[in-house]
Simulated scan of single mutants.
Amino acid sequence: MAVNALVITGYGTNSHLETAYTARLAGADKADVVHFADIVTGKACLADYHFLIFPGGFLDGDDLGAAQTAAMRWRYLRHSDGTPLLNSLQKFIAQGRLILGICNGFQLLVKLGVLPALDGKLFERQVSLGHNDSTRFEDRWVRLLPNPQSPCVFTKNLPMLTMPVRHGEGKLVARDAACLQRLQDEHLIALQYADPQTGEPTQIYPHNPNGSPWAVAGITDPTGLIFGLMPHPEAFHHVTNHPGWTRGELDPPGTMLFVNAVRYLRTLQ
């Protein structure tokens, strides 16, 4: 089947063009960058796409907390015909289509309650992303370990990865200890910060740049079709993006997450 990707922009996103380009590199037939307002007014429709991507940036300047205002916008705005905007997103999810949230997009997905959606409780906030333990903005490259037991479509069969992070609010915070334990037990922690020497998940700074418990770098929902991560895969779509490429450090690019998504969608009838 054809794979049409939609990248949402507006109100402070700043990685939309790189994200759309990476989707095309991964084989998407189309990757449109569409302003959020056009979704609301009906100039663009979620139903026309198979792969929805919320890119990185600083939605609304991170006022009220990263992506908090954007989550309220999705929750309470209505289309021009009066139907709730959230209905369109709920239908998109119910149809088994893919959603990817990168950095600020990940913050939006958890604030909106799209992730992790334990027990099928969509749009109920169960986790959030708080300030880094370092109390400062972190801009660095990290090693990432995919969880082979995770249902996540995006990380399936991937090797150790390397990507940059650039965020001030990336520490996963669960509403209670039981919720955090379920993420671990149900393999919904799809991606973890890893020690570059041992390849094992780590809590040690700066390899874990924000102090997330269980070294969480990205989580999925129980279906594996919705994925959010703090690192930026779209910022490593070519060998020359890597700071060590002149030394022959040829790590797998972040594009592989997008390739997995496109391959999955092509198998659907």
Rank of each mutant, 00 (worst) to 15 (best):
M230P: 12
A28M: 08
P151M: 03
G96F: 13
L161N: 02
G113Q: 13
D185N: 00
H16T: 05
N4I: 12
R263M: 10
P151Y: 01
A23V: 14
A117I: 04
M160E: 05
P151D: 12
H232V: 12
C152Y: 03
H79E: 06
K43R: 15
L225N: 06
L183D: 02
R182C: 06
F36N: 11
H50F: 06
Q203W: 06
V262G: 01
G101P: 11
N210V: 14
R78Q: 12
I8C: 11
F92L: 08
N147F: 01
A37W: 01
L268N: 02
Q68F: 09
E249Y: 07
S15D: 04
P159R: 12
I39C: 13
V40P: 10
G27I: 01
L122G: 09
W214D: 13
N4E: 08
K156C: 11
N210T: 10
G27R: 10
N104G: 03
R143C: 08
F51M: 04
A261E: 09
L161E: 01
D176P: 06
T162I: 01
K43Y: 11
F236D: 04
G244D: 07
W214L: 14
V173F: 04
F51T: 05
V165S: 07
F137R: 08
H242N: 15
R175H: 13
P55F: 01
N241M: 10
S128P: 02
A44N: 09
D63M: 07
A37V: 05
L188Y: 03
R266Q: 09
E124N: 07
Y21M: 06
L115Q: 03
K121V: 00
A20N: 07
A177G: 10
P231W: 09
D60C: 13
S212I: 04
V262F: 01
P209L: 11
A174E: 06
T220C: 15
P253T: 15
G113F: 10
M72Y: 14
M160S: 14
D139C: 11
T162M: 00
L17Y: 08
E200K: 14
H242C: 13
N241R: 12
W74E: 10
R140Y: 05
L158T: 04
F51E: 02
